[in-house]
């Protein structure tokens, strides 16, 4: 008997045959999260952005709001100058980024490599409840860009912001290889409970929220 059969047989002995046939009736309802800050209400659309920005700040992430996608290169240049980084970045293989005029910046579209300092990606969605960026892997969105570089800049279209994780799931049509939920820069408290940023992943996590896709 294989290990698989042995394990399933033991489970079968306890739970009975109903276990393997048709899908069980799973009707336990997930509670709606109840926060002081109302993010569910659709009356106040701006609440979502406010909550996202506030939650991101709580976890040491930074944020900038822009009117147009075309303003991104200038904003990135300013940000990198401010944190004292080279004006060089690996950008996601996404048209939204490659079509931009990067002027002062040296950019390359590819997956990340060991010594890349800065990456720029396009968020699949943002989740207001937790200040989380959702990245979905694809040929246009290599996942290493989210983890290897020291500075990770994410462009989030405001229209891609959802209130909760429950509103995010339906946006996924076919399961990608990987979904990464990212909430702030990488951190550790393994040395005497002292919080240190930039454990293995990005030290700086900067989100640029863009109102119009122009």
């Amino acid at each position: 008997m294989s290990a698989r059969e042995a394990i399933l047989l033991k489970i079968f002995e306890v739970t009975g045959s109903s276990n393997f046939g048709s899908a069980p009736d799973f009707s336990i309802k997930l509670p709606q999260p109840d926060y002081e800050f109302d993010i569910q209400s659709n009356k106040i659309e701006s609440n979502k952005t406010d909550r996202f920005v506030a939650m991101l700040a709580q976890v040491h992430g930074t944020c900038e709001m822009l009117e147009n996608l075309g303003d991104v290169p200038d904003s990135v240049t300013n940000y990198l100058t401010k944190v004292g980084a080279e004006l060089r970045a690996v950008i996601a293989t996404d048209e939204k980024l490659s079509q931009l005029d990067w002027r002062d910046m040296a950019v390359e579209s590819r997956a990340a490599q060991k010594f890349d300092r800065t990456s720029i990606t396009v968020a699949f969605a943002g989740i207001a409840e937790t200040g989380t960026i959702a990245m979905v892997s694809s040929a246009q969105s290599p996942i290493t860009l989210n983890f290897l570089p020291e500075i990770n800049i994410v462009v989030l279209l405001e229209s891609r912001l959802v209130a909760t994780m429950e509103q995010f799931w339906p946006k996924i049509e076919a399961q990608p290889r990987a979904i990464n939920f990212i909430t702030g820069p990488s951190k550790t408290a393994d040395i005497e409970q002292t919080l240190v940023y930039g454990a293995h992943g990005p030290r700086h996590f900067h989100v640029i929220i863009v109102k119009n896709q122009r």
Partner: peptide, 12 residues
Amino acid sequence: QIMSVYTTLFNG
């Protein structure tokens, strides 16, 4: 934490 920094779903 309200949400840990990285939550990843791997599908193959």
